[in-house]
Nucleic acid binder design. Structure first.
Lengths: 185, 185
DNA sequence: GTCTATAATTTGATAGAC
DNA sequence: GTCTATCAAATTATAGAC
């Protein structure tokens, strides 16, 4: 057995939850510290500046997502897209929590340029994964582009979180799958 | 000639610009006051609480958008969708300014519930306008849903603002138009 | 309407004891 | 590593003069 979760990861978990619910600038060291049962000065020990915490959040999020993408079987286009969409569906926790990078991207000009660039990398990584998938599977008709699919899922999360209607996301998710499916058959 | 812009509107202009660039919680009374050349206490005279300013921002934004939508000729599906997309393209000012309601929606759980509900109304209004348009124009094949189009445009703005690549938005905008066009012809 | 002044709170961050 | 203590700055908001 490995050791239980490190404090660093516990802090990241609490911070991620807050950023994805109400944005980066709404997440404070004091609130996160209280969430995990320590003092704000102790959070600063693990992440000296808020920007450090932000970069660590995106790096971990991106690494996790990339790992999940690598695990998706790309042998059939339809099933792969379905899995991709499912990853996003999981991110919309309780209809109240959007993608970490959408939360950061929405306040792009209010965060550090380094953090912003890292956030943009997440989107690019997602788009490239889809483009690679599409390159492997020629279809009969044209359909959604990789960028379009990523944008649609990100936007749908924001719509759902704002209106409180999970339906907004699920409708969009199903439509994406249906369109890819139609292009194959 | 009408009088020049009122201070209330001048304040709203400055506040809107800041919210759309870096989010609602990153917009402070002091910054806005400095933008328009008055003191923060004077901003409070026009908008007592920050929530009041937020609601006024969304109300004005929504009213403006609705007016523009009303002006779109709905006689042909393709041209109408093209105009709709163009409205969104205008919102992505300098690739650095997303939709006001996307900025607010991204921090949905960090804002006042009343303000959140008002923000959600903007998305619903957009979706209903598109649904009404689609109901008027039966097509040969299935295509993007109303919710999907709104979500896609909102998400594309966030991608563009984060990566600094206007292309991300324009690609998506063109793809939407192409797909509606294909469903018609 | 706008100002000065100020209160009350929050926030990011640091120093130093344990 | 975590704590107490503390700081400087920022923020929302109000009172009252002009």
């Amino acid at each position: 057995m490995s050791d239980s979760k490190s404090m660093k990861d516990t802090i990241l978990d609490a911070a991620e939850k807050r950023v994805r619910r109400s944005g980066f600038s709404n997440m404070s060291f004091r609130d996160v510290a209280q969430d995990v049962g320590i003092k704000s000065a102790s959070v600063h020990y693990h992440f000296p500046k808020k920007q450090d915490l932000g970069v660590a959040l995106v790096d971990r999020y991106m690494a996790r997502f990339e790992t999940r993408l690598t695990m998706i079987d790309q042998n059939t286009l339809e099933a792969a897209v379905e899995e991709f969409v499912r990853l996003y569906a999981e991110a919309l926790v309780m209809d109240e929590s959007i993608c970490l990078c959408a939360a950061l991207g929405a306040e792009a000009m209010g965060i550090d340029p380094g953090l912003r660039k890292e956030t943009g990398q997440f989107f690019k990584m997602n788009i490239e994964w889809l483009e690679n998938l599409f390159a492997k599977h020629p279809t009969k008709t044209a359909y959604l582009t990789a960028t379009e699919i990523v944008a649609t899922l990100q936007g749908a999360m924001i719509l759902s979180a704002t209106t409180g209607q999970r339906m907004h996301f699920d409708d969009v998710a199903n439509s994406i799958i249906a369109q890819v499916s139609a292009a194959v058959n």
